[in-house]
Nucleic acid binder design. Structure first.
Lengths: 89, 89
DNA sequence: TCTGATTTGTCCGTATGTATG
DNA sequence: TCATACATACGGACAAATCAG
């Protein structure tokens, strides 16, 4: 059961908003919205797109950083990590 | 993994443009585009070649000045430093 | 001496994005 | 939600010095 990359945040769902967003972003990366090495949407854009607080968006990103799927560069943005065993650039 | 001397600036990359340019210039010097004691391209030329603001170009040059790879002469240009332990002039 | 082109030096303001409270 | 701070990037403007003619 894959998560819908185009899903929206459901504040009434059992899963907390930040976990929902983490799953959505994960699905969007898998779909190819942002290629490895490229920046995902900025925090400001995600705040506007999903109607969440900045702190919530940052928490969602932190989940993906924790799992090594993305990495944040200070004063630059959040980037999709390169796949471990995949085709070279 | 050597940096490509012919690379272009990628504004979407994690590395900031001025750092990218610093690496490119470093690679070009190593390649021999400009010999030790010779002036590298002027700030204006670099602005045109790489599509960056002059302040960004200057910041990139500052990186190389900081590391002693080049030195700037006011109203003259930026020159490639002589190699520390190399053949004399 | 003068003029114009070139080059670096310096400052301004605006915008974006993250970091923090 | 709001505010502030910091780093980065861009664009513009002007100054000062150099050099060629």
């Amino acid at each position: 059961m894959a998560i819908d990359p185009d899903a929206e945040i459901d504040h009434g769902a059992p899963l907390t908003p930040y976990r929902q967003l983490a799953e959505i972003l994960r699905a969007r990366i898998r779909r190819g919205d942002w290629a490895p090495g490229r920046a995902i949407a900025s925090e400001t854009q995600l705040v506007q797109q999903y109607g969440l607080a900045r702190s919530t968006v940052r928490r969602a990103i932190a989940v993906l950083v924790e799992s090594g799927e993305v990495f944040t560069v200070p004063q630059r943005g959040t980037y999709v990590a390169e796949k471990p065993s995949s085709e070279a650039i």
